[in-house]
Lab assay of single mutants.
Amino acid sequence: MEQATVKWFNAEKGFGFIERENGDDVFVHFSAIQGDGFKSLDEGQAVTFDVEEGQRGPQAANVQKA
């Protein structure tokens, strides 16, 4: 698992990007966020996640709020 920071997340559209420590951004979809209830992330929030290869490149999976 990697630890990184949420760059931005649009709760209405259900997706955003996580900024990795190496500077690369990773796409995150609300369905990858672990937990119950409304799944959203806040800008600047610390998260841990795995990286999977998606249809359009790397994307976050198993996202957990740190």
Rank of each mutant, 00 (worst) to 15 (best):
M1V: 12
E43I: 14
V6S: 00
G16C: 07
F15P: 01
E2P: 09
S40I: 11
G37I: 06
W8D: 06
Q59D: 02
K39T: 06
D42N: 13
A32M: 05
T48S: 10
A32Q: 09
D24F: 10
A46F: 13
D50V: 15
G35H: 09
Q45F: 04
A61H: 09
Q45A: 09
E43H: 15
G44I: 01
D50A: 11
Q64K: 12
F27S: 01
N10Y: 05
T48K: 09
V63L: 05
E12D: 11
Q3P: 07
A11H: 13
K13C: 11
S31G: 06
E53Y: 15
S40E: 08
D50R: 13
Q3K: 14
R20M: 09
G35Y: 07
N62G: 04
K7S: 05
R20F: 06
K13D: 04
E53H: 12
N62H: 10
P58A: 09
W8A: 00
W8C: 11
D50M: 14
K7M: 00
R56Q: 09
Q34E: 10
F9R: 00
I33F: 05
V28N: 03
V6Q: 01
Q34R: 09
R56M: 10
I33V: 07
F38I: 08
F15K: 00
I18D: 01
V6K: 03
R20E: 05
E53C: 14
K7H: 09
N22T: 10
K65G: 08
Q34F: 11
G44C: 09
H29I: 04
E52M: 12
F49E: 02
V51W: 08
V51Y: 09
G35E: 10
R20D: 06
A32F: 03
A60Q: 01
K13L: 14
L41Q: 01
G14K: 00
G57Q: 03
D36G: 11
A61E: 05
D50K: 12
G54P: 02
G16A: 05
H29Y: 04
F30I: 09
G44P: 00
V47F: 00
A66M: 15
L41E: 01
G35V: 09
G23D: 07
T48A: 07
V6I: 09
V63F: 00
G16K: 00
Q3E: 10
F15C: 06
D50G: 08
V51P: 04
T48W: 15
S40D: 07
A4K: 04
D50E: 14
R56A: 09
L41I: 05
P58L: 13
R20Q: 07
H29W: 06
M1K: 15
E21P: 13
G44K: 06
F30E: 05
F9A: 04
A11P: 13
T5I: 13
N62M: 07
V47W: 00
F27M: 01
G54K: 07
G35S: 09
Q64V: 12
A32I: 03
E52T: 12
F49H: 03
V47R: 01
D36Q: 11
D42L: 14
F30D: 05
K39Q: 09
I33Q: 00
N10W: 08
F30A: 08
R20H: 05
D36F: 11
T5E: 05
F38T: 07
F27A: 00
Q45K: 03
V51M: 11
I33E: 04
A66R: 12
T5M: 09
E43G: 13
D50P: 01
G16L: 03
E19N: 10
W8R: 00
E21N: 11
N62Y: 04
G44E: 03
N22P: 08
K39G: 05
N62D: 02
F38W: 14
V28Y: 04
M1W: 11
A60S: 04
E12S: 12
A4R: 03
Q34Y: 09
Q64S: 11
G54H: 07
W8T: 00
P58D: 04
D36W: 09
E53T: 11
E19Y: 13
A11Y: 11
V26Q: 00
A46Q: 12
W8L: 00
F15I: 07
T5R: 14
H29M: 04
G54V: 04
A32G: 08
E53Q: 14
V28I: 08
K65A: 11
V6Y: 00
D24P: 15
N10D: 13
N10R: 03
W8S: 02
D50L: 13
F17T: 01
A11F: 08
F30T: 06
A32R: 03
Q34H: 10
V51G: 01
E2L: 14
I33T: 02
D36Y: 10
F27C: 07
G44N: 06
N22I: 10
D25E: 11
S31V: 05
F27T: 02
D42A: 14
V6G: 03
